[in-house]
Design a protein around this nucleic acid. Structure first.
Lengths: 214, 214
DNA sequence: TCGCAGATAGACAGGGCAGTCTATCTCCTC
DNA sequence: GAGGAGATAGACTGCCCTGTCTATCTGCGA
């Protein structure tokens, strides 16, 4: 009953997986919301569109979620998990040193931005459509950025940075900058530029890369 | 009869200047649209809200703009001009060397992000709400980013960079990154971080700063 | 076989949306 | 004072929105 196994993490969910009748209605709603909100925006997409794509009745939606806002938040929270699963997967590739892991992030970004379904960072877009800093929707975006910073700080520490948080903040600037530029301009050029800039930062803020015996 | 003189460029238009009856109805519409789209988003704000804030009749709007989309584009195009006027002003401060001008950008960002009305980059938000790359609204955002890159490239060349475009691209990444993070997290911390990172980049990509005789 | 939980279609209310239209008013110019 | 351009209020169309409700259907466990 239902292959939840192929939850392909980040960019490419082949076709509209939202209609897979093996999935529960709730799963289909989350998937349809994810797709449509990303493709067209939160305010631009009405409940009925999501219901149609998910093949689910209106009452079923309101049995699982008290409101559209609750669905949006659930979609974003799931996307946070998927995002960090995907990123973690990219960083778990064998043969990566702590230092090269910091650069691998930008390779992952490049791949993401170049994908056919890339339409920018869903969290950034959510924060744009719900600009009040204390809006429950906005807060999910805040959480995602904080978690990104934590992840980078950990990696920077593993790589031996003398100021891991400082390095992480600078790398995050490059990450977010490349994703924003890619959202506007399209393509993965910005991510490649960001990788180069990051390499330059690492050369200054990390001890000599020559000592990589293991 | 109307002080169009105080079109204070970028961040702080005191109160709602959109109701200044000295301004023409068209001006008030553009101003009201600018304020409301920035505060709440493009799809979230209806025509009627704009009319009410501008104190203008519906027929007047449709006499000046054929559609809501046309108003949005006009608002964005005006904002492009205001933005570069404002930025140009900050870079025209006396005593700035070409090199320090590149850093002054980030001081300007910091000031902008810290202002009470800052709610992120309007162009980035427009590209998020109109994700299709060839959407007329999206295209205004594309133009603004290109123009930013041109501006930075010129400054980098003046500062003596051996690869002005490369330096400009990296600085733009930091700019956009800081504005995006500020949109999500609030505050101007990101811009200060970006300035530090930019200084580090300049140290590597610009000739020695000691030779600044003129 | 029965009963029930959960999903279904579809109508409905109340409001907001973009855009059109009419009829009135105001103010500037001649 | 007369004429006309442009702004005004507000009604109106037709559509879409979120959220509620009813009544029906399906499929699983006892």
């Amino acid at each position: 009953m239902g292959n939840k196994t192929d939850r392909s993490g980040h960019p490419a969910n082949q076709g509209t997986l939202a209609q897979d009748k093996g999935l529960t209605p709730k799963e289909r709603l989350l998937q349809a919301g994810l797709e449509l909100f990303d493709e067209e925006g939160f305010h631009a997409v009405g409940i009925d569109r999501i219901l149609r794509r998910a093949g689910v009745a209106k009452m079923t939606l309101y049995k699982h979620f008290p409101s559209k806002q609750a669905l949006i938040i659930a979609v974003l929270e799931r996307k946070v998990e998927e995002y960090f699963e995907w990123l973690g997967g990219a960083l778990a590739a064998p043969g990566l040193t702590p230092r090269s892991r910091l650069l691998a992030i930008f390779d992952a970004m490049s791949q993401w931005h170049g994908g056919p379904d890339f339409r920018g960072c869903l969290f950034l877009k959510a924060s744009g459509e719900y600009p009040e800093l204390d809006d429950p929707v906005h807060l999910v975006a805040v959480g995602q950025k904080h978690r990104s910073l934590e992840l980078l700080t950990g990696l920077a520490a593993e790589a031996g940075a003398s100021s891991p948080r400082l390095l992480a903040q600078r790398l995050l600037l490059l990450c977010e900058g490349s994703t924003s530029l890619a959202q506007v301009l399209g393509g993965s050029e910005a991510a490649r530029q960001a990788r180069d800039a990051a390499a330059l930062l690492l050369r200054q803020m990390l001890p000599e890369p020559s000592d990589v015996p293991a």
